[in-house]
Design a protein around this nucleic acid. Structure first.
Lengths: 248, 248
DNA sequence: CGGACGTTTGACAAGGATCAAGTTTTGTGG
DNA sequence: CCACAAAACTTGATCCTTGTCAAACGTCCG
């Protein structure tokens, strides 16, 4: 399922660090992070990275690929809480609280950096900037969930889809500023439905309707943005100021 | 709106600290927290404590009373993200990210401890345990929002109400272990509706139906639990392990 | 070639929204 | 302490967004 692999690059040469979205670190900080990293592992698409309800699960950073956090009810209903992209931390909430209230599943084949959980404490003791960054990442993810909750609670199906498309489009562009449409979004309509709190059938119909309105094209997991302004208007989207993001 | 008052008690004598829910701190930590506290303020019920979208809003701890976090869409639709009870931190996400993506409003008359934002940095530098606690509180709130999102996205109206009642009941009991039914829950049906992602009318009808089923009584903001097990079953509620909570 | 998976569509059911009153409770000023 | 307005709660009728059921179709892969 999840296989260890020989480390691909040292943290100092992490390709993510080269991206403008990520804040730069001092050499000492990078050395500490390198020391915290136990190694890299690969997870195939569809694999469960963290089991729902597991005790003290491992702590990862997503190096490449996509994943998502989710919760399920006993009868199988599933809510996707948010999607995880490279640079996102996996398992931190569980690290803090002791067990994982949610599961994490790989959407694509994914490569993860695994971290030594006990070193987090050392991080707090000796690298207050990194500790601060850690909190920043947690706060940022909470804000994202706040936004999603607002969508699911108060937006119509069409508005929710518009919102999600705009968000995913922006997030992927931050990670690949050179990308041109169409952009690869590795989601099936089941994922969309579970993330939006809608049924699969209704998601499909609303998705088609929006595409017929000429807002975007999304087929075979390829997204082409046709009318970004129209989509943002429909989503009642408000821009988030852009701040460089820490990377553990 | 928000009025400064002479400090009521020193942090060391904070009545919240006496409660079993809250983790104990060393005298040095408490002294630091005391030094971080700028003073206490009172907010009347209904007052906006933090404006949606405000830049660098103040940082508070809720000393007494209830409040809630919310987001609104341009046309006025409102989603309540979660309810805040004594001990909860207010404005921390905004402190981290620079501006507040959500608003905070007092539900009852509330007393707040206001903190010196720049001292947070000192806290990270000199009190790693407290920094850790801060992250813990953020992670805990994210988990709460995760749970609410799951409700709003995947539970029926009746299930959502059951879930919320169980949660609020448990949270209030933690803060007042001696309390006996009926318990005061200072929410109107408008608040319930906005927290659950439902219309007011449907909230009312479903609420009545559950009460007619003998699960609980909720009137005049007084909650009596009649069939906690039945409610938890309906809500598909899974127990969270109880860990003492840090208090800033 | 046969499944498994993902997408698409139509028909129908239903949970929840909206509209419109009416009733009760709460709060405030006289 | 009463009177009155505002806020909160109820209820019925109706509409409609979304869910459920069913089935067909395409594609990829062993």
């Amino acid at each position: 399922m999840i296989e260890s692999i020989p480390p691909t690059v040292p943290c100092a040469a992490c390709p993510l660090r080269a991206l403008p979205v990520f804040r730069s670190n001092t050499p000492e900080e990078i050395a500490f992070i390198e020391g915290m990293r136990l190694g890299q592992v690969d997870a195939l698409a569809g694999v469960t990275i963290i089991e729902e309800g597991s005790q003290n699960p491992p702590l990862y950073t997503l190096f490449s690929g996509w994943a998502f956090r989710y919760k399920t009810l006993r009868d199988g209903r599933r809510q996707i809480l948010n999607f995880l992209l490279p640079g996102d931390v996996i398992g931190f909430q569980a690290h803090m609280l002791g067990d994982s209230a949610h599961g994490v599943e790989a959407l694509t084949n994914a490569r993860l950096c695994r971290h030594a959980r006990p070193k987090i404490w050392e991080l707090y003791r000796n690298y207050p900037e990194l500790a601060f960054d850690t909190t920043w990442l947690t706060a940022k993810e909470e804000k994202l969930v706040d936004d999603i909750l607002t969508s699911v609670g108060r937006r119509s199906a069409a508005e929710r889809i518009a919102m999600l498309m705009v968000n995913l489009y922006k997030r992927t562009r931050l990670l690949d500023p050179m990308a041109v449409d169409p952009i690869h979004i590795p989601l099936t309509q089941v994922h969309l439905a579970d993330a939006l709190g809608l049924s699969l059938v209704h998601t499909n119909k609303t998705l088609k309707r929006l595409q017929r309105r000429g807002l975007f094209i999304f087929e075979q997991q390829q997204l082409t943005m046709l009318d970004p302004a129209g989509l943002e208007r429909l989503a009642d989207y408000s821009e988030t100021p852009l701040v460089p993001r820490p990377l553990l």
